[in-house]
Amino acid sequence: MTKAEFRLETLTCPACVSKIDTAVSNLEGVQSVKVLFNSSKVKVEFDNTKIDAEKIENTIKKLGYPVLSSKVS
């Protein structure tokens, strides 16, 4: 199980949370997603044999939320 944390540009609408949540949790290999609205972070747990952090980052970007930095552990 790999954990990744993405820092996004400031999230402003609570609706963004459900958008990111739905999109990322629909990816294959993603176990859990937590979107922190107030700190503008996305915490993801995933199976690194099925998906990598870069792919998750791209999904978030495609939704229209620029990723400022990411941390994988």
């Binding site: 459900s18 999109a23 939704l63 229209g64």
Partner: peptide, 13 residues
């Protein structure tokens, strides 16, 4: 924004 949300079946402002 409206379209992106709608694609995920979210009704946005």
């Amino acid at each position: 924004k409206a379209f992106q949300a709608l694609r995920l079946r979210v009704f946005s402002i």
